[in-house]
Simulated scan of single mutants.
Amino acid sequence: MKTTGEPTPSLGQTLEWLRKELAEMQVQDQQLLLTLRHLHSVLAELQAQSVHWDDARSSRGASPIRARAGSEGKGCQPVSLRGLAQILRGEESRRSSLP
């Protein structure tokens, strides 16, 4: 809400503010897309590991511990739950900057 002492922004200033806001939103969209792609790949890997564990449990003579030990050296990166939590808490979220 505006007070009577504040000047009314011109149309040019308002359009410039809108351009700035749209540009910030596009950057956020790109960051969210990258995060979504990363989460998708992590979920796909976890699903593959789950299938691997289920196969190891159902096969005779192979214990799940040995099956896991065989897959650990294949370059699987641990999931950074701390980084994911920061993103989900909105530490990189856009703040409102209304004119």
Results as ranks from 00 to 15, higher is better:
13 Q>H: 14
14 T>V: 06
14 T>I: 11
15 L>Q: 15
15 L>Y: 14
15 L>M: 13
16 E>A: 15
16 E>T: 08
17 W>D: 02
17 W>M: 02
18 L>I: 14
18 L>C: 07
19 R>C: 03
21 E>Q: 11
22 L>D: 02
22 L>G: 02
22 L>M: 14
23 A>D: 03
24 E>N: 05
24 E>H: 09
25 M>I: 11
25 M>C: 05
26 Q>I: 06
26 Q>G: 11
28 Q>M: 08
28 Q>K: 07
29 D>Q: 07
29 D>G: 03
29 D>P: 00
30 Q>H: 12
30 Q>C: 08
30 Q>A: 15
31 Q>A: 01
32 L>M: 09
32 L>V: 07
32 L>E: 12
33 L>S: 11
35 T>M: 09
36 L>W: 13
37 R>W: 12
37 R>D: 09
37 R>E: 12
39 L>Q: 09
39 L>I: 04
40 H>L: 04
40 H>P: 00
40 H>E: 13
41 S>G: 07
41 S>W: 11
41 S>H: 10
41 S>C: 08
42 V>Y: 07
43 L>F: 12
44 A>V: 02
45 E>A: 11
46 L>Q: 14
46 L>Y: 08
46 L>M: 14
47 Q>I: 00
47 Q>M: 06
47 Q>V: 01
48 A>I: 05
48 A>P: 00
49 Q>N: 14
50 S>W: 13
50 S>Q: 09
50 S>I: 10
50 S>K: 15
51 V>C: 06
51 V>M: 06
51 V>A: 13
52 H>Q: 05
52 H>I: 01
53 W>A: 13
53 W>I: 12
53 W>V: 15
53 W>K: 07
54 D>Q: 05
55 D>V: 13
56 A>E: 03
58 S>G: 04
58 S>E: 09
58 S>A: 13
59 S>K: 05
59 S>I: 00
60 R>Y: 09
61 G>I: 00
63 S>Y: 00
63 S>V: 00
64 P>D: 03
64 P>M: 00
65 I>S: 03
65 I>M: 03
65 I>E: 03
66 R>Q: 13
66 R>L: 06
67 A>N: 07
67 A>V: 05
67 A>E: 15
69 A>D: 03
70 G>E: 03
70 G>F: 03
70 G>N: 10
70 G>C: 04
71 S>C: 06
72 E>T: 08
72 E>K: 01
72 E>A: 10
72 E>P: 02
